[in-house]
Design a protein around this nucleic acid. Structure first.
Lengths: 153, 153
DNA sequence: GTTGAAACCGGTTGTCT
DNA sequence: AGACAACCGGTTTCAAC
């Protein structure tokens, strides 16, 4: 199923605020509640709407530091990638981790309290992994834009 | 206000699934609905809970390609940063953009349909900006981990 | 912080167009 | 496929403990 323009408008609204009532969404796109309700159910069932979450303000929770890491693995070792992947998914400091093309192997996004906390993470968790050959860290100085909403309309 | 352990447990649950009923949350942390309701309201009021959103499945929407970009600006130009920032926030392909320490200036996360769409974005939007001196693109081959939930407990 | 009750409102379902 | 109406369940507020 390919979502039509009405579906996309609904998704755009829910990506910005998932607490909008169906009634509110319906009035914004000039529809009644029934079709809006059905469309949302369908999008959820199809897995196009993946999940509903709340986003927290990291600064108010003392998690002020974001670091992007480039990691290179030691290719000589067998199953380096498997070991690394399994270790990474367990680390709560790592929010994003992807295999990338280019000079290195992985791109990570890490969130911690401060520079000292990052040092602890770096020394005792990330670089402690046997499969890791090299790490470059890029500290976020200023966040210009952050959104979870992808362009749909 | 610093959230206590009970607040943190609530946040952890809402970060994973914001559609949980208060009743359900209450039973999971062995509390009644009233205090859970009050705590959530408080966390929202304080701005610790920033917003509620839905997350979409990008692949099912044909947005299969994620690219991390390192961008360096031409420092000679006055107000390069301001110009760049303003342009970036308007680009729907860019989900994350941060000023970072190190060899380059910005780290971007871009989501587009495919390689051709990225090429269009790269040539006509990103590198078209006057303030941009250099761009390195890292294509995501495999996403190992992606979460919006920060560690709170 | 707990329990219980009451009012309210949105989600949900069925029926009709 | 959309509109309307009725029902049900959760949220919200209040009281008393």
């Amino acid at each position: 199923m390919q979502p039509d323009l009405t579906d996309r408008k609904i998704m755009e609204l829910l990506q910005a605020d998932s607490q909008l009532t169906i009634k509110e969404i319906a009035s914004r796109i000039n529809l009644s509640v029934t079709p809006v309700h059905e469309r949302i159910r369908k999008l959820e069932k199809e897995g196009i709407i993946d999940k509903y979450v709340c986003l927290l303000n990291r600064r108010k929770l003392g998690k002020a530091l974001v670091v992007y890491c480039n990691v290179t693995l030691d290719k000589q070792r067998k199953e380096s990638f498997e070991d690394f992947n399994q270790a990474i998914v367990k680390m709560s400091e790592v929010l994003e981790c992807s295999v990338v093309s280019g000079n290195f192997d992985y791109m990570l996004k890490v969130i911690v309290e401060d520079a000292e906390a990052y040092n602890q993470f770096y020394q005792h968790k990330l670089s402690a992994l046997k499969s890791v050959l090299h790490i470059s860290s890029y500290f976020v100085i200023s966040e210009i834009k952050y959104t979870t909403g992808i362009a749909v309309v």
